[in-house]
Nucleic acid binder design. Structure first.
Lengths: 169, 169
DNA sequence: TATTGTTATACTCTATAACTATA
DNA sequence: TATAGTTATAGAGTATAACAATA
């Protein structure tokens, strides 16, 4: 067993498994988190110009694309709890980007409708996001980007299936 | 301009850009977040058996692999602020997984050293993590996984370069 | 009874500012 | 003056539980 020895910035690390470098680098979770963090930092900077956060941006896009959906459907789409959509929807409503409309069919529910200002801000934010991502994606070929996104979809699906199998037991 | 119409779960969405489906699906950030969330849910379940969270797990792995490093180096490695390492290191020390040793060279600093219990728990947690990831990675070929991880690295690097260029202005 | 939106609350993760002890 | 660790605190982001109105 290797003994503990002082490390410095330039040291080459050898772990207990004989791999060079940081052994976390073989993990998908580690690499996904690092890549996402870097993309996320860019997105936050992009959205700051529109006074949006990632969650308000995502919510606005969903409402623009699925006009009329209910808050509970928005929660599902964002993968968060219904309770947490309240403040998000409040913020978008107060800024005049979307509106809550009572539905005649079910008086418990609201239909979320984008305003024209909301559709406009959404389109401009998405354009800025797309422009930033285009710069980043330039490190791969167009085919490479397409493949990467497809692979991420497969990984997500596989991870969900594995998770379901594990939580059923 | 398409008018707002009620959406339901089975509706096919057409956005203002003429793309079928959810237009966020063309964004790397969106796909990275979804894939990471699914992997992360599995990792949390895996780590629960060892009473570790993602951040304490990562910290333990770094200390095991770079025995003797200082807390500020750990903060750099984890990409968090020095201040936040205190509670994390406290937790690992209190559980007997690592120890804080005063360095003779610099009496301000601590050297973080894994205990044998810490090395053992780390190895077992990593083995469980690896087993879970192997199940998920099975949705791609071995070559596909290697390529995916390489692409994620390129994306991270490109995103960091783009971010630096944007923040310098 | 079940569901929609809501309120209150708590916990995790992370950042910032200010302190202490060393350098 | 600068750095390592620390403390206190605040702000996101998210989860759970309980409630009123409605189905």
């Amino acid at each position: 067993m290797p003994t503990a020895s002082p490390a410095d910035d330039s040291s080459v690390i050898k772990d207990d498994f004989g791999n060079p470098g940081n052994s976390l680098e073989a993990f998908l979770g580690y690499n996904l988190k690092r890549a996402f963090n870097a993309i996320h930092a860019n997105l936050m900077l992009t959205l700051r110009a529109f006074d949006l956060r990632m969650v308000t941006y995502s919510a606005l896009v969903v409402v623009v694309e699925r006009a009329g959906l209910r808050q509970s459907q928005l929660a599902d789409a964002l993968g968060i709890e219904r309770a947490n959509t309240v403040a998000i929807v409040d913020e978008l409503v107060n800024r005049g980007l979307i509106s809550r409309e009572r539905t005649p069919a079910d008086r418990r529910a609201y239909a979320l409708i984008p305003t024209s200002a909301g559709r406009d801000l959404c389109a401009r934010a998405m354009a800025a996001d797309r422009a930033c991502e285009a710069q980043i994606k330039a490190c791969l070929t167009q085919e490479g980007v397409r493949r990467l996104i497809a692979d991420l979809g497969r990984i997500e699906e596989a991870a969900q299936i594995v998770l379901e199998a594990r939580t059923k037991n």
